[in-house]
Structure formats: C-alpha cells, structure tokens
Amino acid sequence: MYRAFREVGRAVRNIVLLRYLSDPVLREQISRATNKAEAYNGFTEWLHFGSHGYLRSCDPELQEKAIKFLDAVASSVIFSTTIDMTEQLRQMATEGWTILGENLTVISPHRCDDVLRFGDYDTTTLHIPPGTYDAAFAPHQP
C-alpha cells in the first residue's frame, strides 16, 4: 500500500511540474502567491526584533504563543497601515486625483518605513470607534 501511494504521489508531482512548466499563467499565479507569502514573512521577521527572530525556547507551547503573538502584532500593524493608506487615498480622491485600480495593486500594507517599532504609542483613544464607511469617498475601480 505504501509503495502504491508513493508512486501515485510521484505521478501527481510530475503532472503538477509539467503543468507548471507549460503554463505561463499558472507560473504567474504561483509566483504572485509566493511573493505575497514572502513579503509577509519578511515583514514579521522585521517586526520580531528580539533575538533576531529566533525562538529562544524549545518548549512547543511557548513557541506557539510567541508565533501567535507575533501574528497578532503583525495583523495589528497591517490593519493600522491599511487604515492610514485608505485615509490618504480618500484625501487624494477628494483633492481630484484619479485613483486607478491597477495603481492600487502595487501598494502593500507590509510597509516598514512608517512603522515605529520602538516608538511611543498613545492608547488613550483606543476606545473611540472609527467613523462610518462612506462609499462616496471610496477609490473607484475603472
């Protein structure tokens, strides 16, 4: 049974490799997905400034906690950056700038240049809910 499944796995792997080599659209999709994952991994590595990103403990439970905490921090930073980018795009739209969908596809919320990893953060306004979404100020897609 093991040998049969091994051979089926090899056949499936070869079929996928042949499809990958012969289909440029598939290669582009895989490259795009890989680049997104690598951008996120590089961003979380940049955020994980303690111990140069290495997990210090060999305890699986502590490692899981550290990874979950890093994911929560990364998600929070990405969310905050996305809100800032959206506000800037809305401001540009109200000023008369034309915002095209293809231009939005090249910007990323995995930005490091505006994030203060060691800065002072004001938490006194966290209880204030954000304003309601107004579709009139949303960037339009062509």
Rank of each mutant, 00 (worst) to 15 (best):
Y2S: 11
A4W: 08
R6M: 08
E7H: 07
V8S: 14
G9W: 01
G9I: 01
G9A: 14
N14P: 00
N14K: 10
I15A: 15
I15F: 07
V16R: 15
V16N: 10
L17T: 10
L17W: 06
Y20D: 15
L21C: 12
S22H: 09
S22Y: 03
S22E: 14
D23T: 04
P24N: 07
P24R: 05
P24L: 01
V25P: 00
L26D: 11
R27Y: 02
R27I: 01
Q29D: 13
I30R: 08
S31T: 13
S31Q: 12
T34S: 15
T34I: 03
K36F: 02
A37S: 12
A37P: 00
E38R: 15
E38L: 13
E38K: 14
E38C: 03
A39K: 11
A39C: 06
Y40K: 09
F43K: 03
F43E: 08
F43N: 09
E45H: 14
W46Q: 08
H48W: 15
H48F: 11
F49S: 14
F49I: 11
G50E: 10
G50F: 10
S51V: 03
G53F: 07
Y54A: 12
Y54L: 12
L55D: 07
S57E: 06
C58E: 06
D59I: 05
D59R: 09
Q63C: 11
Q63Y: 05
E64K: 07
E64M: 06
K65Q: 13
A66H: 07
K68E: 14
K68Y: 00
K68A: 13
F69N: 12
L70Y: 01
D71N: 13
A74S: 13
V77G: 04
I78N: 00
I78F: 02
F79V: 03
F79L: 08
F79Q: 09
S80Y: 05
T81P: 01
T82D: 10
I83K: 09
D84K: 12
Q88Y: 09
L89E: 10
L89N: 04
L89S: 08
Q91N: 09
M92H: 04
E95R: 12
W97S: 12
W97G: 00
T98A: 14
L100G: 04
G101C: 07
N103D: 15
L104F: 06
T105I: 11
V106Y: 07
P109S: 05
P109F: 03
H110S: 02
C112S: 11
C112Y: 01
C112R: 15
C112T: 14
D114L: 10
D114K: 10
R117C: 08
R117V: 08
F118K: 08
Y121R: 08
D122F: 00
T123F: 06
T124P: 00
T125K: 04
T125V: 02
T125I: 00
H127F: 06
H127T: 01
P130C: 02
G131K: 12
T132S: 11
T132F: 04
Y133M: 08
A136C: 08
H140K: 15
H140A: 15
H140L: 14
H140M: 08
H140S: 15
H140V: 15
Q141H: 11
Q141V: 11
P142V: 05
